[in-house]
Computed example of a mutant assay.
Amino acid sequence: MTVQIKVYSDYVCPFCFIGKAAFEEAIKGKDVEVEWMPFELRPSPSPQLDPVNDPSKKYMWQTSIRPMAEKLGVDIKFPNVSPHPYTDLAFEGFHFAKKYNKGHEYNTRVFAAFFQEGQNIGEIDILTKLAEEVGLDGALFKAALEGRTYHDVQRQALKHAYEEADITAVPTFVIGDTVIPGVAGKEVFENAISQEQQKT
């Protein structure tokens, strides 16, 4: 039985990037179908995080985020793009990529661009370059973002996450009937997948 999995995440959430690595290690070779679900932690016009100038955020990075990443073997850098960009455009790009069966590749590229390369994923030109790197048509992609072609699709995705799925924090992994909030080790995901497969 193919296990259905939904992963709610945001591109500027370090815990999402860290959790993604352990999750993807856990699902290798398994009969699963993963759907990536957009979730904006701070949608416009909410105040943007400015971690470079916020001592509490730097402290959290040093004491919580970095040690967790090191423990799980994830290469992550403190993002010097500050304030953090809104992620609505990046997610509209994801919907475009998904249409062309490149959603997963795009997701991975955008996360890496922000947390490993310090790129500003709020800028259309940067997102277009990333889209091209995963094999998407840059001109079509840029036109879709400039024309806000997927604006309503993204609004609906957020409505689903906030109201229907009742997601309050990310990452959240929904594996069949099992909900795993936050970063988890590979074994936790493997156990949840195994339990779902045994239900048939």
Rank of each mutant, 00 (worst) to 15 (best):
G147N: 15
A21P: 00
L127Y: 08
F23S: 05
R42E: 04
H84P: 03
E70G: 14
I167Q: 00
F114D: 02
L41H: 08
A97E: 09
T128F: 05
K57P: 00
A112F: 01
I126H: 04
Y8G: 07
P181Q: 12
I27C: 01
V174K: 13
S56H: 11
E133Y: 11
V7H: 10
S56E: 15
Y8M: 10
H151P: 00
A131T: 07
A169V: 13
E146R: 06
F39Y: 15
C13R: 02
S9T: 14
T178D: 04
S46R: 15
E35C: 07
L41K: 02
L158H: 12
G19M: 09
S46F: 15
L136W: 10
T63D: 00
F17S: 01
A169E: 09
I124E: 06
P171V: 13
N191W: 07
K20R: 10
A22F: 12
K199L: 14
H84F: 12
A112Q: 14
A97G: 14
R155D: 05
L72M: 07
T200P: 05
V183K: 00
K99D: 04
I27M: 04
S46D: 15
W61Q: 03
R148G: 04
D152Q: 10
N53W: 11
I124C: 09
G19H: 06
D88W: 05
Q154H: 13
D177N: 13
P51V: 05
W36G: 09
E187S: 12
D31K: 14
E40I: 12
E146Y: 05
N80A: 07
I65Y: 12
C13A: 07
A143T: 13
S9N: 11
K99Q: 14
E105S: 12
D177M: 05
L130P: 03
G118F: 09
K77D: 01
Q197S: 10
S64A: 09
V153L: 08
K142S: 12
F17E: 02
F114R: 05
E196V: 08
A157K: 08
I27W: 02
K20G: 00
A131V: 10
P38K: 15
G185S: 11
A165K: 09
P67R: 11
A157Y: 08
